[in-house]
Write a protein that binds this DNA or RNA. Structure first.
Lengths: 105, 105
DNA sequence: TCAATAAGTCAAAAAAACATGACTACCAAA
DNA sequence: TTTGGTAGTCATGTTTTTTTGACTTATTGA
């Protein structure tokens, strides 16, 4: 009975731990989009082809849980929610950029 | 052949594609171990806690399929199999090292 | 000859991840 | 007052991934 997603194994290396933060069908894309500007739920839904509400919700929740994104209710003008990169999230930017820069592999 | 995993979506960014190469429960660890020295099936089985034959097989096959590892039968002394990093595999070393170097996040 | 090691395969079951469709609540515009 | 946008939840169903355990083939060591 592996308890659902409890940290079973302490990661044996940091790279592995970080890869896990971004594992899943939509998390990498959601994270990448967050590099440019704050995210909004309905934008993600429109912009990520093949996505669906539940999956976007899950991706956002999990990125929040691991501390890469922060959810903020914007109580102004057209009342809505935005997700921001946290400091921790920002610390992954260079790594993401390096990935992007790797040539055709 | 394990023809699941139809390439559904062409990746929208390279980072995502690369993350996918290393996605799965044991692939990151198997890949990391390959950075030091050639891998052997039975060593992996012993060294990776919680692993099992089938999962190791799958990880090795998939890393082979995407061209990160190469399988070699060593027809000498105590006849066995070794898995080596390919050139493509080696191109990911700096990225892996950068990940390792990210501070406590 | 018997037992062990190496490197697996295969089918089946269990668990985890992902998708679908119905529904909610709030607000604003027509 | 009906429609539409935003931001979801919930239960259920499907698909993918991972685990289990029995079995294989070949080589080596005692």
């Amino acid at each position: 009975m592996t308890t659902k997603k409890e940290d079973d194994q302490p990661e044996t290396c940091k790279a592995q731990a970080i890869l896990k933060l971004l594992s899943g069908k939509f998390k990498p894309e959601v994270f990448r989009l967050s590099l440019n500007s704050p995210l909004r739920f309905s934008n993600l839904l429109r912009e990520i082809p093949g996505s669906n509400k539940q999956s976007i919700t899950t991706a956002l929740r999990e990125l929040e849980e691991v501390g890469l994104l922060e959810r903020k209710v914007i109580s102004e003008k057209p009342l809505h929610v935005e997700y921001y990169l946290t400091t921790k999230g920002k610390s992954l930017i260079p790594f993401f950029e390096q990935l992007e820069s790797i040539g055709e592999i």
